[in-house]
Design a protein around this nucleic acid. Structure first.
Length: 934
RNA sequence: AGGACUAUAGCUCAGUUGGUUAGAGCGCUACCUUGACAUGGUAGAGGUCCCCAGUUCGAAUCUGGGUAGUCCUACCA
């Protein structure tokens, strides 16, 4: 083995082996366990959020696979309608071609080409993470089978009257020329203005002042509304206004939606271009006057002067014109929420169109019940509230999109506009008996991407066919996803699955936070703080990182800023940390419900952890086999794996095995509770602090000493290798590569069945309580305390670690003496001693620096080693510490209320503490006095 | 406007049902190339657990009220 851990040397080849060997496929045996991957955008790239999410899923999958479950991780990608279409449109744009130049068919071909070209990218990146989904079952939301599922779902819902076509106001994206759902609109507060206009009364008796943030919509006004009890305007209700610039006569109406105290108390009503106005229009039977075309330019039904004008130009012109007419009363700065498309960023326009809708209420009712009655659980639980509040106030879902890339809606129209829904034109014709002379035209629209994603859990398993996989793996066990798509996806999946499958899509939803940068900022291209998981795995030099972060950046000042910031933060670029370190970092940060701040310092720490495991394994191997200069095995030592009983386990062997049981439990508990931070912490602590820092050091005196017997050496080897092998299996779900690499070299020494080819198919270690030996734990605890006591004196007194020193034990019990006798060898080595002396009650001790282990004192003679004043200082520090603590405990015990009311055992504990401390204090003070008198 | 979440060491975070001398990693200080590992070892410093009040014998933990931040939902033209 190499002296240092080099992740790049081991990762890709192991992945290939696993995949080629078919290890990712369900075993076909055991309890089924299934996770559906949230399908990433097929032409997208892996970002930190994916990295986190997939690492969590892979840990769960590997863990369950090793537990013997029939484990399926279903993988696939999403066609991501709008996003993908936009990318290809932009590419064509760069060549000066518009999609209309190509026509629908050719354009879709182009997208398929782009899908073929870049589609493998994200799945390759997923492989780099060590993800172990069943690639042989990979799906795409627009593959033939999925198309069929989508079609079937649409037709069924239509036939059940749960899908309908309707004309109403939708969120219109004038850049994309499509409707979008409420969820795809983001409203941010922006600076704007409030314009106050005078609207003259038709009878010439004066005017009303209306306030608006959108002057251009006045062309479509069909009323002015006031509050029915507003004294100022009561008499005007029923009169009319002559709309300036347009000349239309519109009524003044009363509606208690109007807030008397806001603006002027008069509201212009534009039913065709505002959701609230639309409602009011319905209530008062007002005409709906559309003033825009699909581009949000003023249409030809509007006054000549404004036709063809962009909405924002028209706004300016209308304000100017009204001003010239003396009708502009004032303009005030005003903050308002501006709705923008989440993809395009342009202002979304409420717009009258024909669209397809899903009637959501009946579906939502069932979906709410499923969470209420616990069939589906959210982790963390608080997200259930978010889910409920949205579901209980759900609106019908607009599912049609005026795009070309997606599942085309399976509906046909005859020349009268009558709708026929079916699987194909032929089916529709025969079903509704439509003769060929009658022309049918298929609906041009495609379905919202989330409509198809909603079918993901069962569509990928073969629905609408009743497949074996569907029976085996559905409902799935857990969905791992970000909170940002609970509404988009999780809620819809629950509704659709309950409706079509009559069962839940998954038992548990594990919701994680957003991955942010180390300062808590969202990672974004424009901020230039994006980290690419692949760069963290492979490393990247500074220049490449700068180039990458500033690529495609239009504004030069942003470019400069990002470059400066990047050079400052990563002056050396990024080192190659490897997949295992990256994954471990994710796990360590995966506590509940929080966003994740990703700090490169953390990943470096875990790369070091990998190195620690690597080197500990080297040590174990060096002691379990005879090696050549390169560290290759020439011959294996007998590590006690045959069934002979000629080995002897020491107290430290029994201790580390006990500790191993504890960490096995901690890891299992952590993973079972989706607390990967706790699982990874427990494992880290065990490997680094217990196994490496203590156990490996404790094994050295046995293995190197001439006085230890062959049986003792064999027992130690056996424990070294077995604990290592078990720990590797325990760690494998979290760090697949390094564990496999090392496991292959240790498995036979640890007595693993020779037919086991890969650690990923080995069994997950399970805590065996009967192997926990309390006596050994206490003994080693004692031993550690003695060693730490000596080291503390050494450290504080600046005694060179190379200097061997004598040690005396005073005031010890029989138990102490027993422990000393059985651990002398360890003590001599680990504390670097040259002599140990046990003092009986009457023996006199040399003047020494002292440390207390319970009642027992350990003494390091001062002669020639220790400065008197330094020791006094050290003792006083100890004395102060104990004094403070004693004062606290004393106060407690002198409080009669505490003594009366607290449980007896708590009181007793405090009493014991006090007794121990006063004994210790007396000894330290005595010691301090003696030394001072020297 | 309603709701959720967060506040613990310089930084990033743990802290189970109230009882610990409040922990970890990184960073920091001193010493050390000893044979698995300097991607290392040993020792150490560092905390008014956001503030105020309450419940309790006892509060980082429970309750109420603040303050600050993050986010979600709905919005007034």
């Amino acid at each position: 083995m190499d002296k240092t851990y080099q992740p790049q040397d081991i990762e890709t080849s192991w992945y290939k082996t696993w995949e080629d060997s078919g290890y990712f496929k369900p075993s076909g045996e055991g309890e089924p366990y299934c996770i559906m991957i949230p399908p990433p955008n097929v032409t997208g790239n892996l970002h930190m959020g994916h990295g986190f999410q997939e690492s969590i899923m892979d840990a769960l999958i590997r863990y369950h696979r090793m537990q013997g479950n029939n484990t399926l991780w279903q993988v696939g990608t999403d066609h991501a309608g709008i996003a993908t279409q936009m990318v290809v449109e932009r590419q064509l744009d760069a060549q000066g071609i518009s999609k209309h130049d190509l026509g629908r068919e050719k354009f879709i071909e182009k997208i398929w080409e782009w899908k073929e070209e870049s589609g493998g990218n994200i799945t390759q990146q997923l492989r780099r993470l060590g993800a172990s989904p069943d690639w042989s079952r990979e799906r795409f939301t627009m593959d033939d089978g999925f198309y069929k599922a989508v079609q079937e779902a649409f037709i069924q819902l239509y036939e059940e009257d749960l899908i309908y076509r309707g004309k109403r106001l939708v969120n219109w994206d004038p850049k994309l020329h499509t409707a979008v759902s409420d969820l795809e609109v983001l409203s941010e507060e922006e600076d704007g203005f409030m314009w106050h206009f005078r609207y003259p009364l038709t009878d010439g008796s004066g005017h009303l002042v209306v306030a608006t943030t959108r002057p251009e919509t006045m062309l479509g006004d069909s009323a002015v509304a006031v509050h029915p009890e507003d004294e100022r305007y009561k008499d005007l209700i029923g009169k009319t206004i002559t709309l300036p610039l347009v000349g239309r006569e519109i009524p003044i109406i009363a509606d208690d939606y109007v807030d008397k105290d806001f603006g002027t108390g008069c509201v212009k009503i534009t039913p065709a271009h505002d959701f609230n106005d639309y409602e009011m229009g319905q209530r008062h039977d007002l005409p709906i006057i559309n003033i825009f075309n699909d581009d949000a330019q003023i249409n030809n039904d509007s006054p000549d002067a404004y036709r063809g004008m962009d909405r924002f130009d028209a706004r300016k012109q209308i304000v100017t014109d009204l001003d010239e007419l003396g009708l502009l009363e004032k303009i005030e700065p005003h903050k308002l929420k501006v709705p923008r498309g989440d993809r395009t960023g342009v202002v979304i326009e409420p717009y009258m169109t024909d669209q397809w809708y899903v009637k959501t209420q009946p579906l939502a009712d069932e979906a709410i019940k499923a969470v209420e009655n616990g069939d589906i659980k959210f982790v963390p639980k608080q997200y259930e509230n978010m889910y409920f509040s949205w579901m209980r106030d759900i609106q019908d879902w607009c599912i049609s999109r005026q795009l070309w890339w997606g599942h085309r809606i399976p509906a046909w129209y005859d020349e009268q506009g009558k709708i026929y829904v079916g699987r194909s034109e032929a089916e529709v014709r025969s079903k509704y008996d439509i003769p060929s002379p009658i022309k049918l035209r298929q609906d041009d629209d495609v379905l919202d991407t989330w409509f198809s994603s909603g079918l993901w859990t069962f569509g990928t398993l073969g629905w609408p066919e009743e497949t074996e996989e569907l029976n085996t793996f559905h409902p799935t066990n857990v969905l791992v996803t970000g909170f940002d798509i609970i509404f988009f996806w999780v809620a819809r999946m629950i509704m659709m699955t309950l409706h079509f499958k009559k069962e839940v899509p998954f038992d548990t939803v594990y919701v994680h936070g957003l991955v942010r940068d180390s300062h808590g900022q969202k990672m974004s291209k424009s901020k230039g703080n994006v980290l690419d998981p692949i760069d963290l795995i492979d490393g990247i030099d500074l220049e490449s990182l700068v180039t990458k972060r500033t690529a495609g950046m239009m504004q030069p000042h942003l470019r400069k800023k990002i470059e400066k910031q990047t050079r400052k933060e990563f002056p050396e670029g990024l080192a190659s940390y490897g997949t295992d370190a990256l994954r471990y970092t994710y796990y360590s940060l995966a506590s509940t419900g929080r966003d994740i701040k990703f700090d490169v310092g953390r990943i470096e720490g875990f790369r070091n952890f990998c190195n620690k495991i690597w080197n500990a394994s080297r040590y174990v191997l060096m002691n379990c086999e005879i090696q050549d200069d390169e560290g290759n095995r020439i011959e294996a030592h007998d590590c006690g794996q045959d069934n002979s009983e000629d080995y002897e386990l020491s107290v430290t062997d029994r201790w580390i095995v006990s500790k191993l049981q504890e960490v096995e439990k901690a890891v299992a508990d952590g993973i079972d509770a989706y607390r990967f931070d706790l699982a990874s912490q427990a494992l880290y602590d065990f490997i680094w602090n217990e196994y490496c820092s203590w156990y490996l050091e404790l094994s050295k005196p046995i293995l190197t000493s001439d006085t230890s017997t062959p049986a003792q050496k064999k027992g130690t080897r056996r424990t070294l290798i077995r604990v290592l092998e078990t720990t590797l299996r325990l760690a494998h779900p979290l760090m697949p590569y390094i564990t496999e690499e090392i496991w292959q070299r240790v498995k036979d020494l640890a007595g693993v069945d020779g037919s086991a080819n890969s650690i990923m198919l080995a069994s997950m270690p399970v805590c065996d309580e009967s192997k926990i030996d309390q006596q050994s734990i206490q003994d080693v605890e004692w031993l550690k305390q003695v060693i730490e006591g000596v080291r503390n004196i050494r450290g504080e007194m600046n005694i060179s670690p190379a200097k061997k020193i004598p040690l005396f034990f005073a005031n010890g019990s029989d138990e102490d003496q027993r422990r000393l006798q059985s651990n002398e060898q360890y003590l001599m080595t680990l504390a670097s001693l040259d002599k140990i002396t046990w003092l009986n009650a009457n023996d006199s001790a040399p003047m020494s620096a002292t440390s207390l282990i319970g009642d027992m004192e350990i003494l390091v003679p001062m002669a020639g080693l220790i400065d008197k004043n330094a020791e006094i200082t050290r003792l006083n520090k100890e004395i102060d510490k104990i004094n403070n603590e004693m004062a606290r405990v004393d106060g407690k015990l002198n409080n009669p209320k505490f003594v009366d009311k607290a449980p007896a055992e708590v009181v007793q504990k405090e009493r014991d503490k006090l007794t121990d401390m006063s004994a210790a204090l007396a000894k330290l003070k005595d010691q301090e006095k003696k030394i001072s008198e020297l």
